[in-house]
Simulated scan of single mutants.
Amino acid sequence: MSDEPEPHPEPHPDPAPPAPSPDNTRWTGAKAMAFLKALAQHGKVARAARSVGMSRQAAYRLRARAPNFADFWDGALVEAARRKELARQARAPVHPMLARVRLPQPPRPSAPPPRAGERR
């Protein structure tokens, strides 16, 4: 045993309560605006939802219950389509052989009639 008294620990002030963690399960106004901005950029619902930490299904549920959000969603999709069309027009034209649209084909010449004694 030692003759020295045990040192008393210094009293610690109560620690500050932990900061609340962000609730990634709920939509906020900021999340909705960021979602709509992303949706207007590329028109992909799942990608826009992931960009704000939400699921595609959560986005559709919010759309179903919030008519103003649904209106802005529709506007964002129109903007995305406009951007896509502008980007398409800005690209160099595609060679006709590589185009996705089938070009009209000239009529093929008909086969000459068989000669006497020839088989087809």
Rank of each mutant, 00 (worst) to 15 (best):
M1G: 15
M1F: 15
M1L: 13
D3K: 06
D3F: 15
E4H: 08
P5K: 07
E6A: 09
P7E: 14
P7Y: 12
H8F: 10
P9Y: 02
E10K: 00
E10L: 07
P11N: 03
P11W: 05
H12A: 10
P13F: 00
D14H: 00
D14L: 07
P17W: 07
P17E: 14
P18D: 03
P20Q: 08
P20K: 05
P22K: 02
N24T: 11
T25L: 08
W27T: 03
W27S: 06
K31D: 14
K31V: 01
A32L: 09
M33R: 10
L36H: 03
L39C: 03
A40C: 06
H42L: 04
G43C: 03
R47V: 15
R47S: 15
R47G: 08
A48V: 02
A48C: 01
A49L: 00
A49N: 02
R50Q: 10
S51V: 01
V52N: 02
S55G: 09
R56L: 01
R56A: 07
Q57N: 10
A58R: 04
A59K: 01
Y60G: 05
Y60M: 15
L62W: 01
L62Y: 02
R63Y: 09
A64T: 02
R65Q: 15
A66P: 00
P67I: 11
N68R: 06
D71V: 09
D71F: 05
D74K: 05
D74Q: 09
D74G: 10
D74R: 08
G75E: 14
L77I: 12
L77C: 13
L77F: 15
A81D: 13
R82M: 12
R83T: 12
E85S: 05
L86K: 05
A87T: 09
Q89P: 01
R91I: 00
A92P: 03
A92R: 09
P93R: 07
V94Q: 04
H95Q: 10
H95P: 03
H95F: 04
P96D: 00
P96I: 02
M97D: 14
R100K: 07
R102G: 01
P104Q: 03
P104K: 02
Q105E: 14
Q105N: 06
Q105C: 04
Q105Y: 01
P106D: 08
P107Y: 00
P107C: 03
P107V: 08
R108V: 13
P109I: 04
S110H: 09
S110F: 11
A111D: 15
R115D: 13
E118K: 06
E118T: 12
R119I: 13
R119V: 13
